[in-house]
């Protein structure tokens, strides 16, 4: 039996994540997973025993090879995303990530209060709605971009000694800057944990938003759509005067 007060929302479909953004996202996820798995092996190889002659085996060789191939993909994918931050839609724009305005900081604080501390207002449970990234998430992604930079700089810095190509050579100064390969490798290794922790929290929060808000958070990175209530849409749309009316 339908409850009288129940308000059935009409939802509006919004195209939030364009195809290039989705493509970048999943490629990035796959690559980072690969880099973490191969990275772990490189840092502490498993004791795999085999009866094979050493000359038939290339286990470490393959792990490193995959790491380096993934590293190149990672790098170019990253560059592509930076580019898309200037030409993509408003949800992909670089301004979503960098706290440049007072509003940005204020929104971060709001998200913190509502989604993390779960504070109520006048005894009422609150909900914070953002169609694209909320400010907090945007800022965290900004931090991941910095972590990307750290991995690219330290990674290609180490790789420069094994390569003659000019691209890795651009990073050849990095180990010298940090005071040698040993420290550089350590920084590279520590930074990996940022990715692991980020992934765990990120996946959790996606489920959280989907669960609490019911607007298609999880599937948005698949089809690109999020769904918002008609009222919310009316509130947020910009009212350019329509010459036809």
């Amino acid at each position: 039996m339908a409850k009288k007060y129940l308000h059935i929302h009409r939802l509006r479909r919004v195209y939030v994540w364009e195809l290039p953004v989705r493509f970048y996202h999943w490629l990035n996820a796959l690559i980072i997973l690969t880099l973490i798995v191969t990275g772990f092996y490189i840092s502490n190889p498993l004791a795999l025993l085999s009866k094979q002659e050493a000359s038939f085996k290339y286990t470490m060789g393959w792990f490193r090879y995959v790491h380096f191939v993934a590293a190149y993909l990672f790098f170019f994918n990253f560059i592509f995303r930076l580019y898309w931050g200037f030409v993509g839609n408003k949800f992909a724009n670089w301004k979503q990530f960098i706290p440049t305005s007072k509003r940005f900081i204020k929104e971060m604080w709001t998200v913190f209060k509502i989604d993390i501390l779960m504070l109520r207002k006048n005894g009422q449970q609150q909900e914070h709605l953002s169609v694209g990234h909320n400010a907090m998430a945007g800022f965290i992604y900004f931090l991941t971009f910095i972590a990307f930079l750290v991995q690219c700089f330290t990674g290609f810095g180490l790789y420069a000694a094994m390569s003659g190509w000019w691209l890795p050579q651009l990073f050849a100064w990095v180990p010298a800057f940090f005071g040698g390969d040993i420290v550089t490798r350590q920084i590279h290794h520590w930074a990996m944990w940022f990715f692991i922790l980020f992934t765990v929290i990120h996946v959790y929060l996606v489920f959280y938003h989907d669960y609490v808000e019911g607007r298609g958070e999880i599937s948005s990175m698949g089809g690109g759509w999020k769904f918002i209530e008609e009222e919310v849409f009316e509130q947020k749309r910009h009212h350019t005067p329509n010459p036809e009316h």
Binding site: L48, A54, K57, Y58, M60, G61
Partner: peptide, 11 residues
């Protein structure tokens, strides 16, 4: 180095 590449290590 060939043992390194092969993934064969002293434990």
């Amino acid at each position: 180095r060939p043992f390194y590449d092969a993934g064969l290590f002293v434990e």
